[in-house]
Simulated scan of single mutants.
Amino acid sequence: MLKLIPVMRKLANEREKTIDDERRGDMAEMPKEIADLKAEIATMRASHDAEIGIMRHRANNATMCIDALLMLLKAAPDKVADHIETIAAMRERHRQEEAVEKGTAAGAKIIAAGNGQPAAATS
């Protein structure tokens, strides 16, 4: 039994050394992993900011159309058909602008995914 004590100590020391080496290796990789996660968070934040900007713009456009319709109806209620055409044209123009904004945001996401840089917010 006493003959095993030096062997057991040697095994314990080797096990601790192996564990320490693994920890050092893991810790050496952490700064890169943290930087990668920060870049990913920045990309996601920019993407979400762009999406929120598009939603806010869309809500503002809808409010503007409703306000314009109400104003036109108050000014000349007898020309409702003309007002409907005007507002419909305005809404179509807004839809086209929204499509361009969404395309820009999607393009920024693709570019950011390709080079690891955060996407620029668009609104």
Rank of each mutant, 00 (worst) to 15 (best):
T86P: 01
A89V: 00
K79R: 15
S47T: 14
P118Y: 02
A112W: 00
D78A: 14
Q117H: 07
I110F: 05
E29K: 09
R91Q: 12
L4V: 09
E85T: 06
D78Y: 09
R56E: 15
I87N: 05
G25R: 11
M64D: 09
A68D: 09
D78C: 02
G107M: 06
L72I: 00
G53C: 05
M30L: 15
I84R: 09
I54Y: 07
I34P: 04
S123H: 05
T104G: 00
R24D: 13
L2H: 12
M8S: 11
G116K: 05
A112H: 00
L4Y: 10
E33W: 03
R9T: 10
E16I: 09
E97T: 05
I84W: 04
N60P: 02
E22P: 01
E40G: 09
L2I: 04
E51D: 14
A99L: 02
L70T: 02
M1Y: 08
G107R: 01
H48I: 09
A50H: 03
E14I: 02
M30E: 15
A42T: 03
L72T: 01
A39Y: 08
M55H: 05
R93N: 03
S47D: 06
A68E: 10
P31W: 03
L69H: 08
D78G: 07
P6A: 07
N60D: 12
L73E: 13
A76E: 09
A120W: 08
K109N: 13
M27H: 13
A75Y: 07
A88N: 10
L11Q: 14
A75Q: 13
A105M: 03
A39L: 15
L72S: 07
G25L: 13
T104L: 11
E92Y: 04
G25F: 10
A119P: 04
K10Y: 14
R9P: 00
L72P: 02
V80I: 07
I52P: 00
G107I: 00
L37W: 12
Q96R: 11
G116A: 04
E29S: 08
E101Y: 12
D21E: 14
H94A: 04
M1Q: 10
R24A: 14
A112K: 00
A89M: 06
I84H: 07
M90A: 04
Q117L: 05
V80F: 15
E51F: 04
A50S: 15
R56V: 12
R91H: 02
G107L: 04
M90V: 02
I110E: 10
